[in-house]
Amino acid sequence: MARFIAALAFVGATYTAFSPGIYADEPTDAALTLDAQKGKELFDQSCISCHGANAQGVDDRGPSLIGVGSAAVEFQVNTGRMPMVRQEAQAERKPPMFTPEEAAFLGAYIQAIGGGPEVPESVDLENLEGADIATGGTLFRVNCSSCHAFSTGGGALSSGKYAPSLYPASSVEIYQAMLSGPQNMPVFADNQLTPDQKRDLIAYIKYIQDDQAQGGWDLGAFGPSTEGLAIFLVGIVALAIATLWIAGKS
């Protein structure tokens, strides 16, 4: 767990170091906006026990959130991963405990006290029309499919960890995940994949998810393993029953 804390802390810290100029001013408590103040209230009720006062982190419980940015906070809270029910290898997606509005307050608070990556307002993730899904597809296959699979259905990582299915994730959540690199996911910051590239990528993911499978039911899109199962459970079983009928006494 200590590694985990250290890890998250450094993500933020070094990120800030490498992105000079964007998060220049360190706002003080007094300078909190109204949203951030609401966020602080929520934080002090629900997050403080693990992440500590002023989000400085608590050893063996939760990492410091200084510098993780609002994208990370909103992603974790909106997907229900935070607050965690218990300490485990990987936080799971579950029904969120806070409304999106409250999550935004929390994000504003963390952003205000430590800075960090944010989803740029210039990107239109509501309406993905006009995005280049072919480019998005290429980027998806180079950067994402190795963990999340061609079908976007997710896959296994080492020792019980996993890359989650992208089906339940909203466009904004996917964007935030790329920005913040939650848990074991590598960071794909805006300097590596530009906001436009990210939008293309999200458009591709949404496109193939919404596109009804060509050529019948996709058997869960797990690849050849379910196809093999199907040939035995459907094909061979049906034909074995047929042989019993054909050779049966009548």
Partner: peptide, 19 residues
């Protein structure tokens, strides 16, 4: 990168990776 652009250190954030 795959699209032919050259890679600078600031293109990859900490905790990131690139092919």
């Amino acid at each position: 990168r795959e699209d032919g652009t050259l890679v600078r250190p600031e293109d990859v954030s900490v905790g990131g990776q690139i092919t």
